[in-house]
């Protein structure tokens, strides 16, 4: 009788199982050359608090909260990639508020997905994040947008599913960040935009020089 009760309790607890994962981890500062531009960063409310919920039949539901880690990671990433950064409230700024910046970066999460060992048949939990990063110039024209996928996988034991999913998601954020840090500065549209920023800076610098000279 006692054994039967224990079995029923076990079945009930397993059927209502929810795995909650709060993604947390280190935030490394990328070791890359800074691009000579001042950018505004627009993080949408969805990006700031990104949360994924999914129910897998016979496995229960999963809630993956990666918003804060993702936001902190991107703040740090952009700070390392550009000469200066400032967070802005709108992706397209009116010209009077767009002073002191050369463009606006808008990162988005298009899609997040994960696989458990039960689904993939492997010993790993794996996660993927599809990012889109858009760059607008100071006039609000889109310089370009790029879609990058970050992958991560982590060994998963029978009783450490949430830890493995957390680790896989963290690695996917790192992988996506690595691709952005390395590939974005090499994109032809970004190279052209940086040239325009440099040209505009040279023009404003040479225009300012005679005026300053006149005053003195």
């Amino acid at each position: 009788m006692k054994t039967n009760s224990l079995c029923i309790l076990l079945v009930l607890s397993l059927s209502g199982c929810t795995t909650s994962v709060m993604v947390e981890g280190t935030v490394p500062t990328p070791l890359v050359a800074k691009m000579p531009a001042r950018v505004g960063l627009y993080f949408s409310p969805d990006f700031k608090s990104f949360r994924h919920e999914e129910t897998i039949e016979q496995r229960g539901s999963y809630q993956v909260d990666m918003g804060q880690q993702n936001l902190t990671f991107f703040r740090n990433l952009m700070k390392a990639m550009f000469e200066s950064t400032v967070e802005v409230d709108e992706p397209l700024l009116p010209s009077e508020t767009a002073t002191g910046i050369d463009g606006v970066i808008v990162p988005e999460i298009l899609k997040y997905g994960f696989l458990t060992p039960a689904v993939s048949g492997l010993n790993f939990y794996s996660a993927s994040i599809h990012y889109r990063v858009a760059l607008f110039d100071v006039a609000g024209n889109k310089v370009g947008d790029w879609t990058l996928v970050g992958y991560g996988k982590a060994e998963g034991g029978v009783f450490s599913g949430s830890d493995a999913l957390r680790e896989a998601t963290l690695l996917a954020i790192r992988d996506g960040g690595a691709r952005i840090a390395i590939d974005l500065p090499l994109e032809p549209a970004v190279v052209d935009w940086l040239q325009q920023v440099e040209d505009a800076s040279a023009v404003s610098g040479s225009a300012a020089t005679p005026a300053e000279g006149g005053e003195s």
Partner: peptide
């Protein structure tokens, strides 16, 4: 080491 040298020692880089 990977944190100190990020992003140069990630699986794909």
């Amino acid at each position: 080491f990977k944190d100190e040298l990020y992003p140069w020692f990630e699986p794909r880089t």
